[in-house]
């Protein structure tokens, strides 16, 4: 498995269904209390879409993202990615999907605190088994692309919020994933930095990636081709824009 294959050869078809969710629920059990974070969610995501998910706090946006990111499995329902039934997939299969197909940008950046920027970006390729020289070359390239070519050996604690976010994005792109997921990528950033980041996502979408963003910001949503409005663990409205 070569993690650094060129994007073009990754999926021959640019159209078609990527994710398919049907009556998906997610229930968190805390002692006696059950929290229905998702309560019968059905939708599909096409290849190459730019989807924004919006909704009030606690509506289940992050929960959906975790499911899309294969970090978690639904409690019930049906969920298919690229023809693979995610409820039946093994932990290792999910790990492979996370590694090869999905780039996840977290709200809190989630950088490895004891590794420098370069190592952070390299990490997905380490788990993909890429050779060191190739890894380092590509990680440098990506950091340069997000404008951090002079911050390779800085540790997360030595970087600003925007810089950390860009390291996180570079890391998400390391294995050249077809899907890019970002949970409130601009939530912690000032307006200007936020716009730079969004422009970057726009650009990544233009390159052919499927992008899903969670946001509170109406402006952010304007980049998207489709907006999913959520409330109380359900989809309130599925809105096509542009």
């Amino acid at each position: 498995m070569s993690p650094l294959r060129p994007l073009a050869s990754q999926d021959g078809e640019t159209m078609g269904e990527l994710f398919h969710l049907e009556d998906v629920t997610k229930v968190y059990k805390m002692d006696e209390v059950e929290v229905r974070a998702l309560d019968g969610v059905s939708f599909a995501i096409q290849r190459g879409e730019f989807l924004a998910i919006m909704g009030p706090s606690g509506s289940g946006k992050s929960t959906v993202m975790h499911l899309l990111g294969c970090l978690d499995r639904p409690t019930s329902g049906r969920m298919v990615l690229d023809g693979l039934d995610l409820l039946k997939a093994s932990d290792n299969q999910l790990a492979e999907i996370r590694n090869a197909k999905i780039g996840f940008v977290f709200q809190q950046f989630n950088l490895l605190p004891r590794e420098n920027a370069l190592r952070n970006v390299e990490t997905p390729a380490i788990y993909a088994g890429a050779r060191r020289a190739e890894r380092v070359r590509r990680a440098k390239e990506l950091l340069e692309r997000v404008g951090l070519g002079d911050r390779l050996f800085h540790f997360p604690s030595q970087l600003s919020g925007g810089e950390r976010q860009r390291v996180a994005i570079a890391r998400a792109l390391m294995n050249d994933p077809a899907i890019l997921l970002a949970d409130e990528p601009t939530g912690n950033l000032d307006t200007k930095t936020g716009e730079e980041i969004l422009a970057l996502f726009q650009h990544l979408h233009d390159e052919g990636r499927t992008v899903v963003l969670v946001t509170h910001d109406q402006r952010v949503a304007s980049y998207a081709s489709r907006i999913l409005h959520m409330q109380d663990g359900r989809i309130l409205r599925d809105e096509r824009v542009n």
């Binding site: 932990d91 492979e96 590694n99 977290f106 997905p124 788990y127 294995n175």
Partner: peptide
């Protein structure tokens, strides 16, 4: 714990 979560999110398997 959090570091382990991050590594898993990036594709680390059980074995890793």
């Amino acid at each position: 714990t959090r570091e382990i979560g991050i590594r898993k999110a990036l594709g680390a398997k059980h074995r890793d």
